[in-house]
Design a protein around this nucleic acid. Sequence first.
RNA 1: UGGGGCGUAGCUGAGCUGGCAAAGCGCCGGACUGUUAAUCCGGAGAUCGGUGGUUCGACUCCACCCGCCCCAGCCA
Length: 431
Amino acid sequence: MAFVRISGLSSEAGKNVTVRGWVTTVRSSGKVAFLVLRDGTGLLQCVVVKTAVSPELWERFAQLTLETSIAVSGEVRADARAPGGFELGVSDLTIIGASPLDYPIQPKEHGIDFLLDHRHLWLRSPRQRAIASIRNELEQAIHDFFYERQFLRVDTPILTAAIGERSGLFSTEYFDEGNAYLAQTGQLYGEAAAAAWGKIYTFGPTFRAEKSKTRRHLTEFWMIEPEVAWNDSNDNMVLQEELVSYLVRRTLSNRRAELVELERDLSKLESIKPPFVRLDYGEAIDLLRRKGSTTTWGEDLGAEDESLIVAEYDKPVFVMNYPKEAKAFYMKENPADPRTVLCDDLLAPEGYGEIIGGSQREDDYEKLRQRIVDERLDLASYEWYLDLRRYGTFVHAGFGIGLERTIAWICGLPHLREAIAFPRMMHRLKP
RNA sequence: UGGGGCGUAGCUGAGCUGGCAAAGCGCCGGACUGUUAAUCCGGAGAUCGGUGGUUCGACUCCACCCGCCCCAGCCA
């Protein structure tokens, strides 16, 4: 008898098949009993009728515990009473791996600490399956988006010397070379690759040792960083809104069932289409002051400010051209207002905050060198980066999109920790 | 790192001004031939996060410690 995956059962109606999986729930009504089997591709209701099977099989069925792995054989039949419309009439059952009675996760409410301690088992729930499935769809969609536009994917190093962002670094000994640091960004390498190959993107993990304990932060998260030669800041934002719109559209069309499983309000996603709102930093400050914020020109925007801005619109909002002091050294000075740099943050709707940070890069050798000195960074570490301006400098721009933040927004998750299989946070290294 | 909160059965979670530690889920036993987190009846299961203190008496009040959650900053 052929082994079949649950997702493929609809074409097997009327046939005898064997399905392998894990016991998810068991219910008994005396002489008829039900079990729901999970195999990762779907859920299947299996029915055992006492008078139709041997006493041994009935007894074996009665012994089943949650999460026992089994093989069940029987006839597939359409039945409106079964979830999914199909069920299996059990004629045989083999226990593959027993599961003791203390399986910790039950079909009921649990606290978050308990669930995270049992993350390896929590992944078996329908909700986590739905999130993982949407994550997979988004990763594939990102690759497709860039592939169709002839971008080269570049894998940048995870072990680096100290370069990139200013915030907390994870370090480890590296032979005789002193300390190595886990990458916080692949951007600077991406710029080198853009000068070589024109249009590139990175897709990889990044690490921040910030002592952040919020629902918007992980210490290890995945980031996608396109870098495009000859794009200016405006081209950069157009690329961002095209990407984000594509990701939402594709999830809506390919993963609608999973969004429904997560009880996502689909109408909020349907309205995500270009163009997005563009607010100059100065305009954003004016808007905030009208709404009672005390943030003044020159300060970075706080989480509360972002929520105030986003509440005005039903699609993502670009906040552009921040004051130089609030942003990183590599961002290009704004010719129209040298107090500011040519950059943008993309704020997701519904309070999900910044999902993208992007900028046109400083392409003037002297200005870039001076910014490195002003920020008191180690100039020697950046000599190779300055070479990109020394040997044929070029207008270019790029951005970083946080994968988990994007997933959390599209799925409507309250916290980033569910957006990745094994989240790494300040107080969590296991499992 | 700062501010706020929480810690009671395997899980979730009541316990208010100190006086024999609720309940639901899960588990065990029983009933039930179509259940959807089945239902009904019965049962077992708790040194109340830890250490001290106050008190005739502490889950409850106080101090310290440990762990976690939320918010802020930093950022994606």
